[in-house]
Computed example of a mutant assay.
Amino acid sequence: MQTLLRRVQLGSGVVLLVYLFLHLLNHALGIWSLDLAGRGLMLALRLWHSAPGTVLLYGAALLHFSLALWTIYGRRHWGLPLTEWIRLWAGLSLPLLLIRHAVDTRLASSLYGFEPNYERIVIALITSGSQGLQLALLAPGWVHGCLGLWLRMRHHATARRAKAVLMFLLVGMPLLSAVGFFRMKQAVLATHTGPLHPDPKLVTHHLTLDTWRHDILVLYLSLVIGALVAGLLRNWLERRRLRKEPVNV
């Protein structure tokens, strides 16, 4: 069972890592032009908004998160090495990105007909003041996925030989993504002389979307804290029971 769970965790993690890679790559294409990044976005939307892509992405996210909750609950101690603490922090931040992305694009598209492109997305991020948050959340998720994959593959000779390339991807992709986003931001600002206005569909339904985002975020944090508290309580009860058991001489 443990072997099966590890394989499910690895498989779901790889799906999420591919999603993040394509997301970062699309942003990086903005270094060359907003149009090129937009074409990359359309290809990504065709992939992830298709029925198989939807099941694959959100199924992988649900599986990976469920296994993360089980791992948090099952921990007998929290004396972790620094690498594990970084991976845990980075992994727990990834759903924050997925929640915002799912609500602002997928839910808005499905319920209200919002058609995402990079100009609309950049304007929405600028006017909401959340462009820094978007970039800040992409990087930890990418770090979490890369570290997890490396910890699984580091014993293979091929992975060790490719360590320099992997380190470049680990550091370079978020940096290129940030540069591409700022270039797209400059391109959008250059084409708008007046104040920026988000898509009317997002303005009309922003209260409903904010409520969805808030409720899902509260549910996510409640599950994480609940798994942690339940695990700590179980550990305390086990230690208490052991102290009360008589010692056989």
Rank of each mutant, 00 (worst) to 15 (best):
M1A: 08
R6P: 07
V8P: 12
V8F: 15
V8N: 02
L16E: 01
Y19T: 02
L20D: 14
H27P: 12
A28C: 12
G30Y: 03
D35V: 11
R39K: 10
G40R: 03
M42W: 15
L43C: 00
A44P: 10
R46D: 09
W48L: 00
S50E: 05
G53F: 08
V55N: 05
L57W: 06
G59K: 10
A60K: 03
L63D: 11
W70S: 05
R75C: 13
R76A: 04
G79N: 03
L80W: 10
T83W: 06
E84V: 10
A90T: 11
S93I: 09
L94K: 01
I99L: 06
R100S: 13
D104N: 13
R106G: 00
S109A: 13
I121R: 05
I121C: 04
V122I: 13
I123A: 10
S128G: 04
Q131N: 00
Q134E: 11
A139K: 04
H144A: 11
G148F: 01
R154L: 00
H155S: 09
R161P: 05
A162W: 13
L166W: 05
L166V: 02
L169R: 10
A187C: 01
V188K: 00
V188M: 00
H192T: 03
G194N: 01
T204V: 11
H205G: 07
H206P: 08
D210N: 07
D210G: 15
T211I: 06
H214Y: 12
L219W: 08
I225D: 07
A227Q: 08
N235E: 12
N235S: 15
L237Q: 13
R239E: 11
L242G: 15
R243M: 07
K244H: 15
